[in-house]
Each structure stands twice: as C-alpha cells, then as structure tokens.
Amino acid sequence: MRLPIPSDRTTRLVTVSVLSFSCAATAFTTLWNVTAGLAVAVLVTTSLTVAWLLTPTYVTVRGRRVTIVSPGRRITMTVKGTRGTVDLRGARLLGVGGVFGYVGLYRVKGVGRCHVYSRRRSRLAVLETDRGTVLVGAEPPEKLLKAFEPATS
C-alpha cells in the first residue's frame, strides 16, 4: 500500500515566504558585496536543498514494515503498534520545521519525544516502532493506522 504525504496550506505559505526572503536577501547582499552575496547564496541554497531532500513525499506499507520515502532517503522501520492521531503541538528539538514540511526530533504534547515525518501539522498517525515513537503525515491517517491493526477472526 502506498499513501501520499501531502502539504497543508501553512507549509506551502511558509515555504514560499522563506524562498522569497532568501532570494531577496541574496540579491541585496550581492548588491552590497559580491563575495558576501555569493557566500549567502551558497549557504541558503545548501540549507534549502537539504531541507527539501529530507521532506517526505509518500509512505509504503508491507506487512508490519513502513517505509517513509523522501527525495534524499528511505527510512524503513517495523511497526509494533499504533496510538491514533495527534496534532503537531510542541517543540522541535532537531530538524526542519515549516520549510517544505516537518521532519526531525520533536517533543509533542500528549506523545512525548518522537520523530516526525510530515508536510502538515494536523492529524498525524502515531506509530510505535522499533525506532521509538514516530508521527507520520500520511493521507488518510486512518488507512495507515488500519494497516497495522491486529487481524480479527
């Protein structure tokens, strides 16, 4: 099974704002000092490229294994259980927050410390995995959670 990880309006707005500000800052700095402008351009381009490479695009499920796919990597883990859905409310400890999505280590209210792989802040599936608690922004989250329910006879 393959489920998309779509962006919400807030993520798209933040991404466009950051890209616009970055272009303006680079242009202004280049007018002031060409060398400094090139340094800013390299720093901004590198940062945004890394953020884009880490942003998840879809999730696949095979048996008890879930794979989160982004342009730059695939993360596969074994799911031990589920805990429903939750909104992303808390603090980012390490990672990307808002530009292209939400990826990294977070402390989320009602969940605690967890890894987040999403492009939106609402209705994230909570999975208990061999790597700890993981929040995934697959759409629809109910379908992802149902894939890991125990089979009933």
Rank of each mutant, 00 (worst) to 15 (best):
107 R>T: 11
110 G>P: 14
36 A>R: 12
126 V>F: 08
30 T>G: 07
32 W>L: 15
68 I>K: 02
1 M>W: 12
141 P>C: 01
43 L>A: 15
64 R>Y: 07
54 L>P: 01
137 G>Y: 09
110 G>N: 13
143 K>S: 10
20 S>I: 02
134 V>M: 11
119 R>A: 11
31 L>H: 10
79 V>H: 06
111 V>D: 08
10 T>D: 06
81 G>E: 09
20 S>W: 05
93 L>S: 00
140 P>G: 07
58 Y>T: 00
120 R>E: 12
39 A>H: 01
147 A>W: 03
121 R>D: 03
89 R>S: 06
66 V>H: 07
64 R>H: 14
22 S>T: 11
31 L>M: 12
105 L>S: 12
72 G>L: 07
108 V>I: 09
2 R>K: 14
144 L>S: 03
100 F>A: 02
150 P>G: 09
21 F>W: 07
12 R>C: 05
13 L>V: 13
23 C>V: 13
24 A>E: 01
66 V>N: 09
7 S>D: 05
22 S>K: 02
42 V>F: 11
141 P>F: 02
112 G>D: 09
85 T>L: 00
152 T>Q: 13
69 V>Y: 07
61 V>W: 03
126 V>K: 05
103 V>H: 06
9 R>E: 15
3 L>S: 00
152 T>M: 11
138 A>M: 06
75 I>M: 15
28 F>M: 11
87 D>T: 02
7 S>I: 03
126 V>S: 07
102 Y>S: 00
32 W>I: 14
73 R>I: 03
72 G>C: 11
97 G>T: 05
47 S>G: 15
78 T>S: 12
3 L>I: 04
19 L>F: 08
136 V>L: 01
146 K>S: 15
113 R>F: 02
97 G>D: 14
130 D>Q: 10
109 K>A: 15
54 L>Q: 14
48 L>K: 02
75 I>L: 15
59 V>S: 04
121 R>F: 04
121 R>A: 10
144 L>D: 09
64 R>M: 12
2 R>Q: 15
134 V>R: 02
75 I>D: 13
40 V>N: 08
40 V>Y: 07
88 L>A: 01
147 A>S: 15
110 G>H: 14
122 S>K: 15
61 V>D: 06
121 R>P: 07
36 A>N: 09
112 G>S: 10
109 K>C: 01
68 I>F: 02
145 L>F: 01
63 G>M: 10
151 A>L: 15
73 R>H: 14
131 R>F: 09
97 G>L: 03
130 D>S: 13
116 V>L: 06
45 T>K: 03
112 G>Y: 07
92 R>D: 09
126 V>R: 04
146 K>F: 13
67 T>L: 03
34 V>G: 08
63 G>H: 09
6 P>D: 05
126 V>C: 10
135 L>F: 00
85 T>V: 10
90 G>S: 06
4 P>W: 08
78 T>Y: 03
11 T>K: 01
96 V>L: 06
134 V>S: 05
49 T>H: 03
8 D>F: 08
118 S>Y: 01
64 R>V: 09
46 T>K: 04
24 A>D: 01
149 E>I: 04
142 E>R: 13
